[in-house]
Nucleic acid binder design. Sequence first.
DNA 1: GGAATTAACTTTCACGGTGAAAGGAAACGG
DNA 2: CCGTTTCCTTTCACCGTGAAAGTTAATTCC
Lengths: 142, 142
Amino acid sequence: MINQSIDEVDLRILECLLEDAQRSHKEIGQLVHLTGQAVGARVRKLQDAGVIEGYTLRWNPDKIGLTVHAFLIIFMKSNTAHQSFIAFAKSREEVAEVHRVSGEGCYWMRVRLRSGAELNAFLEQLLQHANYRLSLSIETIK
Amino acid sequence: MINQSIDEVDLRILECLLEDAQRSHKEIGQLVHLTGQAVGARVRKLQDAGVIEGYTLRWNPDKIGLTVHAFLIIFMKSNTAHQSFIAFAKSREEVAEVHRVSGEGCYWMRVRLRSGAELNAFLEQLLQHANYRLSLSIETIK
DNA sequence: GGAATTAACTTTCACGGTGAAAGGAAACGG
DNA sequence: CCGTTTCCTTTCACCGTGAAAGTTAATTCC
């Protein structure tokens, strides 16, 4: 069992860090009634267990000019195209996220771009590997 | 112009922190040829500008039992249902992300759940507000 | 029952990252 | 040529952090 060693205190620490990963262990400790050092030990345990994979930023791509935010459902043109599509997706930094999915299409993908022109150019290249259905994000609700 | 005050050094710092937000300013400074304090000042500037919104974790929901990862395309049943759907989506902690989109459907949404049974229960409640098309993530490619 | 063991916590301590403050260099404008 | 602004470095004091050692409680074994 994977969860055997993860209790509710660990979960509260996790939630706390998800909200703000810069909170000090001491501050978190006050919420869960532990010393900062004990919190530190639990955080290390969560890292070792692979629950916490790393630390990163919540940020706003819009503010550096990445104003286009698109979701793509990908359909393969042939059974042999998977590898080339995956290689393409991994190599392009516009591609923020890719998942193999069941249901609608074969893959689901998120991209961020600077403009409609860039989107157009990107889609043209994507077409060499796969067909797609495009949704543009108009507003982030949550 | 928003970008006027953001230069390539800022972008390198941003990339650096996106990879690992725990890197010290001193360490980043060595990469961009600045002192740790100068890096700190730029990071603060990025925060004030709203580029950096906060600090959070990269983590693995799988490891705490959230094994079901689904994407949903949402279709409204009527023009008046939007508010109730948005309220529903915001209130449910299973819902990790929601966007208003153009193209296929009205909204796009990501949920994480513990099991097929939970997914079933969730979808039943969702149906009170909207129709949907479901894709399950089988594997994270990127 | 009592001794040994283990797990998880607290206390203490030294190191180093951080932000504030002050000083310096380069660019700009009258 | 001088004042101003901007961005940097240096210095310094504070505090968060992890390591180590000590404490407590629960478990196990004879």
